[in-house]
C-alpha cells in the first residue's frame, strides 16, 4: 500500500509472566493509524486494549510485562528498537497519552502549572516564563476559565472534568502527532463525557493530530472514531470503519456488543448481554477464544484458531464463519 501511515503496528505480542502462567495480554495485533484520523479500540476489560496503548508508548510495566514480538513503526521507525532515552524524546512530545482516571493521573502535590510547564521544559528549549505563557494558552485552549490564576492551583482544587481538561492540555503541550486516549471519559459524568469528547473533536480539527481512542463504550465510537478495531482476549477480532461496524458487523462478538446497547426507537426489551465471562488469559484453550460464549460456535471453532482476513474491502474479521464461507465459495 502506498498510503502514508503515521503509525503501523505489526504482529504485536505483549506478555505478562505471572506465577500462575504467561498472560498473553496482546496477542498478534495489527493496525495502522493515518495522520489526522481517529482510530477506536473497543473491547471489554482485560481485552488488551490498554496494554496495546502502553506497548506503543513502551510503558508496559516491566517486570512482569514485556513486548515479546512485533513492530511498532512510527513514521517508519520501529519504536521497539528504540532505547529508553530515545523513547523519552517521543513520549509527551510526538506521541502523548491521556488516561482513564483524571482524579489519580495528576500528581497531587504539584500545581497544575508546574505539571504543564514541566512537559514543555523537558521537550522544548524554553524559559520558565515562556513555558508559563504557553501553559496559560493551553488551559485556555481546553476551555478552563481564568487560566492564568488556575495555573497556581493544585489538582484537588479542580473538578473531575476540569482535571481531564488539564490532562488533555498537558498531552497537547508539545503538539503531538498522535494522542492516545485511554478511556478518557469512563470516570466522568455523562454530561461531562460529552463535553470532553466535543473538546477532543474540536482540538483534533484545530491541531490535526491523530487519535487512538480506547474505549468500551460504543457510543464514544459512534461519536468520534473513523475506524474501529474490536479486541477480545488480546486478539483483534474485527477491524473496519465506523459505518460498517454499526451497519454490517461481522464478528459474533461485535454483534453481542451492539446488542447490549439500549435502543431508543425499539420497544422495551431486556438487553441481551453476552453470556459467560471473558476467558482466563493464562489458560487459553485451542481454537477461537470467543468460542465458549459465541452463539454461532461450531465444533471446529474449539479446535482451529481463526485468522484475521479481509472479508470485504476495508473490513477485516477473525472468525471461522467467514473462513469456511470463503472455502465453500472457492
Amino acid at each position: 500500500m502506498g498510503e502514508n501511515f503515521l503509525l503501523q503496528v505489526r504482529d504485536l505480542h505483549t506478555q505478562f509472566v505471572t506465577q500462575s502462567g504467561v498472560v498473553k495480554a496482546v496477542d498478534g495485533v495489527n493496525f495502522e493509524v493515518k495522520p489526522g484520523e481517529t482510530l477506536g479500540i473497543v473491547g471489554e476489560s482485560g481485552s488488551g486494549k490498554s496494554m496495546t496503548a502502553l506497548s506503543i508508548m513502551k510503558l508496559v510495566p516491566s517486570p512482569p510485562g514485556e513486548i515479546v514480538k512485533g513492530e511498532i513503526l512510527y513514521n517508519g521507525d520501529d519504536l521497539i528498537k528504540k532505547t529508553e532515552k530515545q523513547m523519552r524524546h517521543i513520549r509527551g512530545n510526538k506521541i502523548s497519552m491521556i488516561f482513564q482516571d483524571p482524579m489519580t493521573s495528576l500528581n497531587p502535590v504539584f500545581t497544575v502549572g508546574e505539571q504543564l510547564t514541566e512537559t514543555l521544559r523537558t521537550h522544548r528549549n524554553v524559559s520558565k516564563r515562556q513555558a508559563l505563557e504557553h501553559a496559560t494558552e493551553l488551559l485556555n485552549l481546553v476551555g478552563i476559565p481564568d487560566p492564568k490564576a488556575r495555573l497556581k492551583n493544585y489538582p484537588h482544587e479542580f473538578s473531575g472534568g476540569m482535571r481531564q481538561r488539564v490532562m488533555i492540555a498537558m498531552a497537547l503541550a508539545c503538539d503531538p502527532e498522535l494522542l492516545i486516549a485511554d478511556e478518557p471519559t469512563t470516570a466522568l459524568d455523562v454530561t461531562v463525557q460529552a463535553q470532553i469528547l466535543e473538546l477532543l473533536k474540536k482540538l483534533q480539527k484545530e491541531l490535526g493530530m491523530a487519535i487512538i481512542m480506547i474505549t468500551h463504550d460504543l457510543g464514544v465510537v459512534a461519536e468520534i472514531c473513523d475506524r474501529v478495531m474490536v479486541m477480545y482476549a488480546g486478539k483483534q477480532v474485527e477491524f473496519t470503519d465506523r459505518f460498517r461496524l454499526f451497519d454490517v458487523p461481522k464478528h459474533p462478538y461485535t454483534w453481542g456488543l451492539l446488542n447490549s446497547i439500549p435502543k431508543m426507537e425499539k420497544e422495551k426489551k431486556r438487553l441481551k448481554a453476552i453470556s459467560g465471562h471473558p476467558p482466563d488469559l493464562r489458560h487459553l484453550r485451542k481454537g477461537c477464544p470467543f468460542a465458549e460464549r459465541c452463539p454461532k460456535a461450531k465444533a471446529s471453532c474449539r479446535i482451529q484458531a481463526p485468522h484475521l482476513q479481509e472479508v470485504e474491502p476495508g473490513h477485516l474479521v477473525s472468525c471461522l464463519l467467514y473462513e469456511e464461507e470463503k472455502v465453500t465459495l472457492e
Binding site: 508508548m57 510503558l59 523513547m87 523519552r88 524524546h89 517521543i90 513520549r91 509527551g92 512530545n93 502523548s96 497519552m97 488516561f99 482516571d101 489519580t104 493521573s105 495528576l106 500528581n107 497531587p108 514541566e118 512537559t119 523537558t122 521537550h123 490532562m167 498537558m170
Partner: peptide
C-alpha cells in the same frame, strides 16, 4: 497513576 503520567510525558 500519576507516575505513569509522568513517564508518559517523557520525563527523565
Amino acid at each position: 497513576d500519576f507516575i505513569r503520567t509522568a513517564n508518559a510525558k517523557g520525563l527523565a
